[in-house]
Amino acid sequence: MKVRYLSAVLALGLFAGPSQAARFTVTIQNLTQGIYFTPLLVAAHDSATHLFQPGTAASASLQAMAEGGDLSGLSTDLATAGAVTETNPAGGLLAPGGAATTATLDTGSSANGYLSITGMMLPTNDGFVGLDAWPIPTTPGTYTVDLNAWDAGTEANNELINSANGGAPGTPGIPAAPGGDAGSNGTGVTTTETNGTVHIHRGVLGDTNPAGGVSDLDSRVHRWLNPVARVTVVVQ
């Protein structure tokens, strides 16, 4: 949880019990200059549910999201858990600098007092923007949380575009560079993933050779520093 980045200074101390009802909207802003987010998954769920957990191996559902932007597995998992969800508030990719807001989510009388968000970062192998089980305040107000880039730990970050199969779980490669600014014919940055658990993404290497080099990514365009997204939650 990113309490360290909580910028709603006035919110300190106002977190109430996570099982209390809340009606709220969630706005996600892409803070990067050159990274796209695939359709986002926004979910209010109970205390036992996690879409991902740092230091824990990714589920198959998370892997599918992180490698190919596929939300079907995570959506099924959340439905089973009785979560309140909204998929794809941006109506497609969320471009650099862009923002998207959900409809009003209502946790009613349920125990869905925790907010999680995921979306794949393009172009990356298995990078994603994520929020893990953030306690939703019940006191009306505006709350801000900054999100980091995570690595699902499920695919070697070879940084090679593979538009045919790169989005399939277990198949190396980046499915797309929506900005149309990636190269080709790179030799590959690495063939191994040293950390098989979800961890903070180390960023991409890239290079300045669009027709070769080790990476199909551009070191001048596709790098980032955290945070990569800002979440603003307005509790009614």
């Binding site: 803070l31 200059q33 980032w224 955290n226 945070p227």
Partner: peptide, 12 residues
């Protein structure tokens, strides 16, 4: 350049 403000990606 993109003409919008973003979090900096760092220098190469």
């Amino acid at each position: 350049d993109v003409d919008f403000i973003a979090v900096h990606r760092g220098v190469v």
